[in-house]
Computed example of a mutant assay.
Amino acid sequence: MVVVEDLHRTYGSGASAVHALRGVSFSVPRGELVALKGRSGSGKTTLLNLVGGLDAPDAGRITVDGLELGSLGESGLLELRRDRVGFIFQSFGLIPILSAAENVGVPLRLCRTDPREREERVALLLALVGLADHAEQRPGELSGGQQQRVAIARALANKPALLIADEPTGQLDAETGLAVMELLRAVVRSEGVTALVATHDATLLGLADRVLELGDGEIVEHGAAPALHA
């Protein structure tokens, strides 16, 4: 589903240059949830931005769902982000004046989905994330965990092949964060999507199929997720 080959990304030049990624390579099979761990500055966000087509590498190749990103023009990358990739951010990124249902429906409106089909998809997704009874509430009326659930539903609106989540539980308490991560894992299973999730929480890593650890822009460890203990 995702193939990354010898990826390099540097910001700045000369003595002040920051080498965010140094020859990163890995692959993610379809339907797998892979967690990225590493200290702040290790390159996690840079890697997610590159795989999601939000930034371009200095060298290397990225293939997502059979598409080689370097061969896509700006319009091709826009279509990739709109149709094949769903993004979930730490800050939720919801539109304050819209209801939960309206926020989830934004991507479908951009694709000019038939209104009846859009309403059915929105209702299905809100039910999937356990918020069927909160459809008319605005973000300010929801808890942090509920807002992140709305953001997950919105990311799934266009049936993406890949979910990219950057510290999706970073603003949540431990219990709520674990519930959101469990929801992400359930969504990967039920919707058949692939997920690449950056997280610093050791407990959450146990819910992933596999863990990649980044250090100073390089992958320092591939491994199975640690087992969860009761």
Rank of each mutant, 00 (worst) to 15 (best):
A100E: 04
P107R: 08
I88D: 07
G66C: 12
P115E: 12
L78V: 14
G140T: 15
G66Y: 12
L131T: 07
G130P: 08
E120P: 00
G144N: 09
F92R: 04
E74D: 15
I88A: 11
G144H: 07
I164V: 15
G145R: 05
L94W: 07
A101E: 14
G93H: 12
E136D: 15
L72H: 02
E136L: 12
L124H: 12
N158L: 03
R138D: 07
P139R: 01
V129K: 06
E120W: 06
G86V: 02
E119I: 00
V104G: 00
Q90E: 11
F92P: 03
S91F: 14
N158D: 01
V106D: 07
R116V: 15
N158E: 00
L78M: 10
L77H: 09
L78R: 14
P139W: 01
A123C: 04
L67W: 10
E74G: 14
L67V: 05
L69V: 12
R149A: 04
I164N: 00
P160D: 09
I95P: 05
L72M: 07
G73F: 06
R121D: 04
L128Q: 15
A151P: 09
D133N: 14
L142P: 02
G73S: 06
L72E: 03
I95K: 08
P107Q: 12
N158A: 03
A123K: 11
Q148S: 12
A157G: 13
G76W: 07
P160T: 08
Q147W: 07
L98S: 01
T113N: 10
D133M: 13
R81C: 06
S71P: 00
L124Y: 13
G76L: 10
L131G: 06
I164G: 00
Q90L: 12
P115I: 12
A123M: 02
L80M: 13
V106F: 10
V85T: 07
I97R: 13
A151W: 01
E117F: 00
V85L: 09
E117V: 14
T113D: 03
R121A: 06
G105L: 02
R84H: 05
L108W: 02
A123P: 02
A127W: 00
E141Q: 15
Q147C: 15
L162K: 01
P139Y: 01
L162T: 02
I152K: 05
D114A: 13
L98E: 00
I88G: 13
L67H: 14
E120I: 10
D83I: 05
G93W: 03
V129H: 04
L80Q: 03
F87C: 11
S143A: 08
D114H: 07
A132M: 08
L124C: 08
L163D: 05
F89P: 02
P115K: 12
A101K: 01
E68L: 12
R149N: 07
K159N: 15
P115M: 13
E74A: 14
R116A: 14
Q146F: 02
A155Y: 09
D133T: 14
L124P: 00
G76I: 04
P96I: 06
G145H: 03
L69G: 11
R109E: 15
Q146R: 06
F87W: 11
A161M: 02
S75A: 14
G105E: 12
